[in-house]
């Protein structure tokens, strides 16, 4: 279980708190949705949950123990995949960063062999997001934080990526937090919705 207890975060001491006293539990195999408009701290909460930022108060526990410093069973997938890859690397090297690639997995995500010799800027956003997902899924991942991962993509690509991902979530019983401003998407994907941030609806 991925669990956060009483998390409070602000970017500096004098600044106002972005969020306060947040409790959240995600069970393996469960897909939790978090809707809300931009600019209220959803992405920051995602970074706290995946260990990119340290909260001022509160703890994040994964299966009862704090997040490890190195290889992390909680992986964050970003909205803009182009920031999440080294622009000087080719796709093959990027894919192998997390661990050995499972060929079946990359086939499920529609990764083509001819992509492997390309540089990130020669792939489209949707293709690059698949690469980032497969890279994360090849590590010893148990929880996935998806921060608006398909909001830059067209509906067909979005549906394709989520269908591949849902299969994998089901098979490996991953716990997932889906952050999105699109309520319809959250309704499609999630078994439970948490409202930490004021919801203006779509």
């Amino acid at each position: 279980m991925l669990e956060c207890r009483g998390i409070t975060f602000s970017y500096d001491k004098n600044h106002k708190k972005l969020f306060q006293d947040i409790d959240l539990k995600i069970n393996p195999g469960e897909i939790v949705g978090m809707p809300g408009p931009s600019g209220q701290g959803k992405s920051t909460l995602a970074k706290v949950l995946s260990g990119y930022l340290q909260p001022q108060v509160g703890t994040v526990l994964v299966d009862g123990s704090p997040l490890p410093a190195g290889k992390n069973p909680v992986q964050l997938i970003f909205q803009n995949p182009e920031h999440a890859v080294n622009p000087h690397w080719n796709v093959r090297k990027i894919l192998n960063e997390g661990g050995i690639i499972n060929p079946e997995l990359s086939k499920n995500f529609g990764i083509q062999n001819f992509w492997l010799d390309r540089f990130p800027h020669e792939l489209s956003g949707g293709e690059l997001q698949r690469i980032c997902l497969v890279r994360a899924l090849c590590s010893n991942l148990r929880y996935l934080i998806c921060d608006e991962i398909t909001s830059m993509l067209d509906a067909l690509t979005q549906a394709g990526i989520w269908h591949s991902l849902l299969q994998e979530i089901e098979k490996r019983q991953l716990g997932v937090l889906v952050i999105s401003h699109d309520n319809a998407l959250i309704a499609r994907l999630c078994s439970r919705v948490v409202h930490f941030f004021e919801d203006t609806g779509k």
Partner: peptide, 14 residues
């Protein structure tokens, strides 16, 4: 400060 450097550490790279 770039995302891919932080991410590399989270993927277990030293």
């Amino acid at each position: 400060s770039s995302a891919f450097i932080h991410l590399s550490a989270k993927l277990g790279r030293g």
